[in-house]
Design a protein around this nucleic acid. Structure first.
Length: 876
RNA sequence: GCCCGGAUGGCGGAAUCGGUAGACGCGGAGGGCUUAAACCCCUCUGACCCACCUCGGGUCGUGCGGGUUCGAACCCCGCUCCGGGCACCA
């Protein structure tokens, strides 16, 4: 690290606080938790009118917290999610209970038909590993050859390309570290209600978590075993299920693949395969090879093959054919569906393509038929599309239960109840959220504090041996092979001396191999707000008392967390979801007292600017583009096209801060950015406008200092009433604007007030009129304000001075001018006391010469008078 | 396709609770200061019409079309366009 280690964060910096004041030379970072620092921070925030007696403040520190990031990873590795309590617990507690015979492991982790007590050591170890919050999984992952690494789902965009670098991404099965974020889906969803975040961001997280309620239903094989569990949100349509589809990767595909095609299998069901196994294998191979991008390109064309077997619809005993198709996703629900073509668009398309049955079980309203140009009640064969709306159940009865005549919600409840009694189904909640793919094949990144033994089991590196540091190597690139089946090789795997390690993990020194993947860039950002509280703590990642002081909930039921967090929307479902997950794990394990990391969130907008492309579609430097008289644009004499976008390197449309510092200074740049519009809104950069705020700073300066002599010109003279009122109104508006982060209006009010001062006082502006303004300006223009403060004779920083508070008595004007309307149209104005009664207002309005003239004796049928606001006379 | 946001002068934007639309700034016009220019200071600046020595007055106006209300930039219904998110999630 070179130069300054500046105490700032997204949230802190956004206030425009004088970061330089806190700049500390490298190697001497402050402990923000010293009393002096806490007091200082609290004053800073009080100065901003944020109104709390104590405030948590973020402060950046040096990197080098690998050690604690690794330590937290080990907490995930050594914990499991206890469904009973809904909390993470140490895995040691689980093992103790298993050994004592107090409980059995989660079913899906046990080998079929066994119990804990039957298992040998290796199997027990596998069961334990399957419970961990950090676990290794062989699963299809997003492999990005261009980056030589795998990516999390959240890092892959809709075009099947990497968020970073825009490289193609393909699916490939790989052994990777995963974090069990899905266990926290419900709490991540519910606790959004505790947060003061923009609704659109909450909504994005809700959609990403994607909770949906429905039912799982068992469709048994014709012979009775095994059963396919399907997930549906429409159990009410179960009588209309005419086939079942497994995801191509589903575990039961082999079990359901017949030896030969049944009699009468249509040709198009076989995919050209001589027998079901050939067809299924070919289809699976084809699916596996297709990248996400190819799938996208082929839009919604439905493909699939018949497995040659049938399953039994539990409500009516009908055999329904079992297909595999890639429109069913392996990672969602149970990876298998019941298809109800009459009431699901995708099933409808598939059924039409494969000639499968379509059975109406929800009767659409007349309006639906009309919209589709059908006669009311037209038979399902004529439907151009599935009906997915609300309707009345029909043709949905067996000997035991009838849904006929019920609405969709009632039918869902009725059939779910019946399935429960039969033991063939139950209501279920599923989420779109998947577990978080946490390993990368990169050099830069925290190494996993994990070693592998010869039997392939992972072991934690003891906490006292952390951090595991990166070895020195020469070649940092991941090995990219032309062989499509070659496994990605992380750069660390080539550091043989580092990989092989001898450790005593309690059973004597043994040789292990280090994990050679590294953690993604998110790992550090998942908890940095905690480390900033206590950056030099060698005993813990944060002292619990310090965490409780800065982040702890202020009253029961509150989330706690950072008071204000400012950042871009691009983090909505990445950083902000990951960090919440880690925080909740740490909360469960008793390491933090806050349930959420960030209490209030604010998204700043982007600065945008025009960008220009030439005929090849390449961007040319915007600064070099010349605008012609006819509104066309040229670069080096070549015509270019204008577009508009986020200011940055890729569009070559940046104005660098350096240019602005050079021309106007840092305060002007900061003030400009705060002034041009609401902080949360993207808006264009317009260099021409910068001069406006620059002038403001000069005018303020000249109200304090004679620009020729450099002498301070303020006087000890009295402040007149008008000025005093103007001052306090400005202070009130400024405090309000800071609180609500509407900095643009603060600038406007300060400008207004400063304009009021100009030319008003002969021989200098009174000190009492100027000093509060300087304090109010400081968050927006810290350097100028600090300089003025010193020249005004103060020998300590204004950072130590409280934010001036408006006197409520001075906020009320002596008189106000309010409009008088006739029939809602403004016809005149009257000047009245702000608290004049409605009767007084009416009298004053009628007394107004122009109003009297316009009324001309007409009958006033109604008077609406709002004190301090307006009077409206309603006439016939 | 679905889900969010947004649209106000020539430009960025203000109007926080349904109560004087256009604060503040940029740009523009005119004037003062100056040998001159810059800086600075002052006045004006939504459109249209009437009046004009002067004060002024009227109509329209917040993307479009309707509605509710004494009164709508703000609430409701139906659209258009722009920005963002998700997208075979059963």
């Amino acid at each position: 690290m070179t130069g300054h280690n500046v105490l700032h964060t997204m949230g802190y910096d956004a206030f425009g606080l004088p970061a330089e004041q806190y700049a500390i030379e490298s190697g001497q970072h402050p402990r923000v938790t010293t009393e002096a620092n806490i007091a200082n921070m609290a004053r800073q925030l009080a100065r901003l009118g944020l109104g709390h007696d104590r405030r948590r403040v973020l402060a950046t520190t040096d990197v080098g917290y690998y050690r604690w990031t690794q330590w937290i990873f080990l907490q995930l590795f050594e914990s499991y999610y206890d469904a009973g309590s809904g909390r993470a617990r140490p895995i040691a507690a689980l093992v103790a209970e298993l050994d004592a015979g107090d409980r059995e492991p989660d079913e899906h982790t046990l080998p079929a038909g066994s119990s804990w007590s039957d298992l040998g050591d290796a199997d027990r170890r596998r069961v334990i590993d399957a419970h961990r919050l950090a676990y290794v999984s062989e699963a299809p992952v997003n492999w990005c050859p261009g980056l030589g690494t795998v990516l999390a789902n959240e890092e892959v965009n809709a075009e099947g390309r990497s968020e970073r670098g825009n490289f193609p991404v393909e699916r490939r099965p790989l052994r990777q570290w995963m974090l069990r974020i899905t266990s926290y889906a419900e709490r991540l969803l519910d606790d959004l209600d505790l947060l003061d975040w923009p609704e659109p961001i909450k909504l994005m997280q809700r959609n990403w978590i994607g909770r949906s309620t429905g039912a799982t239903v068992a469709f048994a094989a014709e012979g009775g075993d095994p059963s396919i569990e399907v997930f549906t949100t429409r159990p009410d349509t179960l009588f209309g299920a005419t086939y079942v589809v497994l995801a191509p990767e589903h575990d039961l595909v082999d079990a359901f693949t017949a030896a030969a095609w049944p009699e009468g299998t249509p040709n198009e069901w076989t995919g050209g395969g001589a027998d079901p196994k050939t067809a299924v294998d070919a289809y699976r191979a084809a699916t596996a090879r297709r990248s996400e991008r190819d799938r996208q390109a082929e839009s919604r064309v439905k493909t699939g093959v018949f497995t040659g077997t049938f399953a039994i619809n539990p409500v009516n005993g009908d055999p329904v054919p079992v297909f595999i198709a890639d429109y069913v996703l392996t990672g969602y629900g149970t990876g298998a569906i019941m298809a109800v073509p009459a009431h699901d668009e995708r099933d409808f398309a598939f059924a039409k393509a494969f000639g499968l049955g379509v059975v109406e079980v929800v009767h659409p309203p007349a309006s639906w038929f009309a919209e589709h140009g059908l006669d009311d009640g037209a038979p399902v064969e004529q439907w151009p599309d599935a009906f997915t709306g609300e309707g009345i159940a029909t043709a949905s009865a067996n000997d035991d239960v009838s849904l006929d005549g019920l609405s969709v919600p009632d039918a869902k409840a009725a059939i779910t109840g019946w399935l429960g009694v039969q033991g063939t189904g139950r209501s279920t909640v599923t989420y779109k959220l998947r577990d978080w793919l946490f390993s990368r094949q990169r050099y830069w990144g925290e190494p996993f504090p994990i070693v592998w033994d010869d039997d392939g089991f992972a072991h934690a590196v003891p906490a006292d041996q952390l951090p595991v540091t990166l070895p020195e190597i020469d070649d940092f690139t991941p090995r990219v092979s032309d062989d499509p089946d070659a496994l990605p090789e992380p750069p660390l795997a080539r550091a043989d001396d580092w990989v092989k390690v001898s450790l005593d993990l309690g059973d004597g020194p043994r040789t292990y191999r280090r994990e050679t993947n590294t953690m993604p860039q998110w790992a550090g950002s998942c908890w940095y707000e905690l480390r900033y509280l206590d950056p030099h703590n060698d005993e813990a990642f944060v002292d619990p008392e310090i965490e409780a002081y800065w982040m702890g909930p202020r009253s029961p039921g509150e989330s706690g967390g950072v008071d204000l967090y400012v950042g871009g929307v691009e983090h909505a479902v990445l950083h902000l979801l990951y960090a919440r997950f880690w925080h909740k794990v740490l909360f469960d394990l008793g390491h933090v007292s806050s349930v959420e990391p960030f209490h209030r969130l604010f998204n700043q907008g982007y600065v945008q600017a025009y960008a220009f492309t030439d005929d090849r579609g390449f961007h040319v430097p915007a600064a070099e583009v010349v605008e012609g008289d006819d509104g066309t644009f040229t670069h080096d004499g070549v015509p270019v096209h204008r577009e508009y976008g986020k200011m940055g390197k890729s569009l070559k449309n940046s104005v660098t801060p350096d240019e602005m510092y050079e021309a106007y200074g840092a305060d002007t740049l900061r003030l400009y950015e705060m002034f041009t519009g609401p902080f949360d809104q993207s808006r264009p950069w317009n260099t021409r406008d910068v001069i406006g705020v620059h002038r403001l700073l000069q005018r303020i300066w000249r109200n304090v200092v004679d620009e020729h002599s450099g002498e301070v010109t303020v006087t000890d003279g009295a402040v007149d009433d008008d000025t005093l009122r103007a001052l306090h109104q400005m202070l009130d508006a400024a405090a309000d604007g800071y609180e609500s982060l509407r900095f643009n209006t603060v600038v406007a009010r300060i400008t207004e007030y400063n304009n009021h001062l100009i030319g008003r006082f002969d021989g200098g502006v009174p000190r009492a009129a100027v000093e509060p303004m300087v304090l109010a300006l400081a968050p927006l223009a810290p350097h100028v304000a600090e300089e003025l403060w010193e020249r005004l004779g103060h020998d300590t920083s204004l950072a130590w001075h409280d934010f001036p508070v408006a006197d409520p008595a001075l906020l009320v004007a002596e008189t106000v001018e309010i409009p008088v309307q006739i029939n809602g149209k403004v016809r005149s104005h009257i000047t009245v006391a702000p608290d004049a009664s409605t009767d007084d207002l009416e009298a004053a309005a009628r007394a107004d010469a122009r109003i009297a003239e316009l009324l001309d004796g007409a009958e006033v049928t109604r008077v609406i008078a709002v004190p301090g606001r307006m009077v409206n006379l309603v006439v016939k």
